[in-house]
Design a protein around this nucleic acid. Structure first.
Length: 505
RNA sequence: GCUGGAUUCGUCUAGUUGGCCCAGGACGUCAGGUUUUCAUCCUGAAAAUCGGGGGUUCGAAUCCCCCAUCCAGUACCA
């Protein structure tokens, strides 16, 4: 059996879309499961859409995700170059081969002439199609005489090469996910294979590269399904064995229908890109999963389950497990809507699973952003206490800042609800009790304070929350005596004093 | 418009050869519990007449036919 070789082939036209990441992930899982190779090819045949930095972005994104390529741009390999612009010289001969064998022809029609044809057809509520019925009336090597064609070529007139579909032929694409898909060639138009700038189009470059790189399986987005018949015909024209095809369902926007797009993320508050991206032209910044505080394994797990499942009820799967369990048969046929809540849940799960070392390292990085430093042992203590409340990495600061710095303000709603006349006096007395516990012990302190609260028949909820407001700044957080134990009795006393002064001036 | 694809709880989905499905799990939602608060956590509940309509069958989410809706493609873009 042929060795499994799959590729991910993005265009460097901007940041990598999360749907593209899923496509790459499925390719990777399939390759690794079958002991095959996973290749990164850059499809930059459209020079007008090239965006600087996009290629580097793609490589960095996969590095972050832990998805490794065996060959390709940035790695090298025996089938290089892996960038289509660098393969430019080799495509011409394949276009020529097609022309020589009657599978393609030269077309000299200007874009303006074709536009006019399209508008004309549109006016009659029809669609203009460059095909067997219209070829004869257009400016190409089928309609023109041999001499005219040669004269045009000799004169250096711009031309494209178009594929010549045989008339009335049923073309069947066997898709691993959808089964056989058949379409009649009369409904297809003669696609441009080779552009007037001397570059192949996607279709030609794709087939030539997949063949010469010995790709065994083409796993790509569903948007390619309509052009799959062309690809099948191209393999046939060249006399090459076609790879197996699998067209993945689309990733849909969470509200309504339709493909997930860049704008949806900005609108709905979740990233559409793995890494943050700054548009080099406009300067617009799009958020990324990494910068938003997602763990790469959570992103991978969530993405894997958007359109696939292991056939069991297992949901938590790391990359290695995914490699073992993945199967093309279990890929669903319909598009999947992105679900922010589930993504959040996954991230929470993976934060709970993170090793203490990793937790501390993430924690430290967040603190540095706020110019705060702390001993690893202290970080460890706070992390153990707080990690189950954290969903995203930035919360390592947002949820824990009071362990490092005194609150700068007090939640007015909480104060209004919990801070009553007499509160200050009770806090002072409780503080005295806590200070009298020598050496400090959180359980002893807790018990003695409880005695005071009960002995004075105080409202537990009110009094403890006012204490909490003083330490935290809001009515939230873990056990009070854990906080006191962490920040120290001295700091506790000064926070109490400060709260009283601020709230009851 | 044309062509192709898709259609099970709000969402992701299980359901592959018709009966074990008056449809299971997860996220979310709601209720209760735990807690001094918030979050977490635990327990429970509601939630899909399987897009609709016809068949076939003792029996259909699963097979057949028709319809509807949604999506994709329809560029010298990928």
């Amino acid at each position: 059996m042929k060795k499994v070789r799959v590729r991910f082939a993005p265009s460097p036209t901007g940041p990598l879309h999360i749907g593209g990441v899923r496509t790459a992930l499925y390719n990777y899982l399939f390759a690794k499961q079958n002991g095959g190779d996973f290749i990164l090819r850059i499809e930059d045949t459209d020079q007008t859409r090239f965006v600087p930095g996009a290629e580097e972005y793609i490589i960095e994104a996969f590095q972050w995700l832990g998805i490794k390529f065996d060959e390709g741009v940035g790695i090298g390999g025996p089938f290089g170059p892996y960038k289509q612009s660098e393969r430019k010289p080799m495509y011409k001969q394949y276009a020529d081969f097609l022309i020589e064998n009657g599978w393609a022809y030269y077309a000299f029609d200007t874009p303006e002439a074709l536009d006019a044809k399209r508008k004309e057809a549109e006016a009659q509520k029809k669609t203009f199609q460059y095909d067997a019925t219209t070829r004869g009336g257009l400016c190409n090597s089928i309609a023109l005489s041999k001499e005219e064609v040669e004269a045009k070529l000799a004169a250096g007139d711009p031309f494209v090469v178009r594929f010549k579909y045989p008339a009335d032929l049923d073309i069947t694409v066997h898709d691993l996910i959808r089964g056989d898909v058949t379409i009649n060639s009369n409904l297809l138009d003669d696609k441009v294979l080779y552009k007037s700038d001397g570059m192949p189009t996607y279709h030609l470059a794709n087939i030539v590269d997949d063949h010469t790189m010995e790709i065994s399986h083409v796993i790509r987005g569903e948007e390619w399904l309509p052009s799959a018949p062309l690809h099948v015909m191209l393999y046939k024209a060249f006399g090459w064995e076609a790879p197996q095809f699998a067209h993945l369902p689309l990733l849909l926007k969470p509200d309504g229908n339709g493909k997930l797009s860049k704008r949806d993320g900005d609108r709905l508050g979740f990233p559409v890109f793995p890494l943050q991206w700054t548009d080099p032209k406009s300067g617009d910044v799009s958020s990324g999963y990494r910068e938003s505080g997602y763990l790469p394994e959570a992103v991978i797990n969530m993405l894997a389950l958007l359109g696939w499942n292991p056939g069991t009820e297992q949901e938590m799967m790391d990359l290695d497990t995914l490699v073992k369990l993945f199967s093309i048969e279990n890929i669903s046929k319909s598009g999947a809507k992105f679900n922010l809540e589930k993504a959040k849940w996954f991230n929470h799960q993976y934060i709970q699973l993170a090793s203490p070392e990793r937790l501390i390292s993430m924690f430290e990085k967040e603190l540095i952003k706020h110019d705060v430093a702390a001993e690893p042992a202290y970080l460890q203590y706070v992390a153990d206490l707080m990690k189950e409340r954290i969903h995203f990495i930035p919360e390592f600061w947002e949820q824990t800042s009071y362990f490092f710095v005194a609150p700068q303000e007090y939640d007015p709603q909480a104060v209004k609800k919990r801070w009553k006349p007499g509160t200050a006096e009770h806090l002072r007395k409780m503080m005295n009790i806590i200070e009298s516990v020598q050496p400090f012990d959180k359980e002893t302190a807790h018990n003695q304070v409880m005695e005071y609260v009960q002995g004075n028949e105080l409202n537990m909820g009110a009094i403890m929350n006012s204490f909490r407001i003083a330490l935290v700044g809001a009515a939230k957080g873990p056990d009070l005596f854990e906080i006191i134990s962490a920040i120290g009795v001295g700091e506790t006393a000064s926070r109490i004093a400060r709260a009283i002064q601020t709230i009851e001036p």
